[in-house]
């Protein structure tokens, strides 16, 4: 039986038969369906995925006319991370003129709202200068990052220390107090950047510290939207699943812990977000076929229920993309094309 070049979630190369690839596609999709209580992919979708995974071509793309908006989170940091020493405005110009970005984001290297707060007035002139010199929509973005509010980084008792001591109520109260401070910081920084002229505010990797982190993001979105009805807010998730670090927090009567993308997007809508960025994580021990079918199953369910535009995250280690510093072109192009072809999405 013919063997096809394939990759695992960690990027390592393997040889697989078409039968093995199809088995992994079905298993990956059913894993998502089981976890999210959503439908698995249909036969023609499996067939399309099998076709692209068995294609001998290095690069796969969408059909003309099916292209989507391509957004970049924190790219002004990424260009410096690889040792290209340009300033942030130059980085924005490189992405808009050379990299084909449809939107960009100005971000500070600390990339969390808390550390940006004391230097926000230093960030504003850079944003204002960038807005004069660029053409494409420009977000200001950072992470909510609730972890920075507990000891030793912040003032509140650390829930991860309280819980093993059996102080569960105290741990939950600490999360509740911390999220109030986080909301204030997001609203403070978001307001300044909007008043400087930002086209949008990005709340990136929401929920990284669990349900309290996600709740703070939703409340901050609600407050910013009430203050500036025309503001564009994008909420991008940290992971596919809201971890119940507090476990009993609710928003609009819905428990946040345990929510997957198709449930999270309804919360983002209710809070007034303009764009939602769902996530599906890559499992390094499973094949690219397993991961991509799983990711598409989650994103498809999210896209079908969403009333606001969704931009699934397709960076390293998410959306079927392998976990590597340099994800291979073969797997990224397949993930990108398949996600865009099979899901009702509005951007990446």
């Amino acid at each position: 039986m013919d063997q096809f070049f394939h990759r695992m979630g960690d990027g390592s190369a393997v040889q697989m038969t078409a039968k093995q690839i199809m088995a992994d596609l079905v298993e990956g999709s059913e894993d998502a369906a089981d976890r999210g209580k959503i439908p698995p992919l249909a036969k023609e979708e499996y067939d399309y995925l099998l076709d692209i995974f068995c294609s001998p071509h290095k690069f796969i793309s969408v059909e003309p006319g099916r292209e989507v908006i391509l957004t970049y989170d924190a790219a002004t940091l990424k260009i410096r991370r690889v040792g290209v020493h340009v300033d942030r405005i130059q980085a924005l110009q490189i992405y808009e003129k050379i990299m084909g970005a449809d939107t960009m984001e100005l971000a500070h290297v600390d990339y969390s709202y808390k550390p940006v707060k004391p230097i926000a007035t230093f960030e504003q002139p850079i944003l204002e200068q960038a807005l004069l010199a660029t053409h494409i929509p420009l977000f200001y973005g950072a992470q909510p990052n609730l972890g920075l509010y507990s000891q030793p980084d912040g003032p509140f008792p650390n829930p991860s220390e309280l819980m093993p001591m059996g102080k569960i109520k105290e741990a939950q109260e600490s999360y509740e107090a911390a999220l109030e401070d986080l909301v204030k910081d997001i609203v403070f920084v978001g307001s300044l950047m909007y008043e400087s002229g930002a086209d949008g505010i990005n709340l990136d990797t929401a929920g990284a510290a669990g349900d309290a982190d996600f709740l703070a993001t939703l409340i901050a979105t609600e407050k910013l939207k009430a203050k500036y009805p025309d503001i564009c807010i994008e909420i991008g998730m940290a992971g596919e699943f809201v971890l119940g670090m507090h476990s009993q927090l609710t928003y609009k009567g819905e428990r946040l812990a345990g929510m997957y993308a198709h449930q999270q997007v309804k919360m983002a809508e209710a809070a007034g977000a303009t764009i939602f960025g769902p996530v599906s994580n890559t499992n390094t021990s499973k094949s690219a076929a397993w991961n991509l079918a799983r990711a598409i199953t989650f994103m498809k369910a999210c896209g079908e229920i969403a009333n606001i535009p969704i931009h699934p995250n397709m960076g390293m280690g998410v959306g079927g993309v392998t976990v590597n510093d340099q994800p291979p072109v073969d797997v990224v192009s397949r993930s990108s094309a398949a996600m865009t072809t099979l899901c009702r999405l509005d951007g990446l």
Binding site: F59, I60, S61, V62, R66, E67, V68, I69, L70, M99, G100, A101, D102, M314, P327, V329, V332, S333, S336, A337, M339, T340, L348
Partner: peptide, 8 residues
């Protein structure tokens, strides 16, 4: 890769 595969 994304820009070429599916970006506008």
């Amino acid at each position: 890769t994304h820009a070429h595969a599916s970006g506008m």
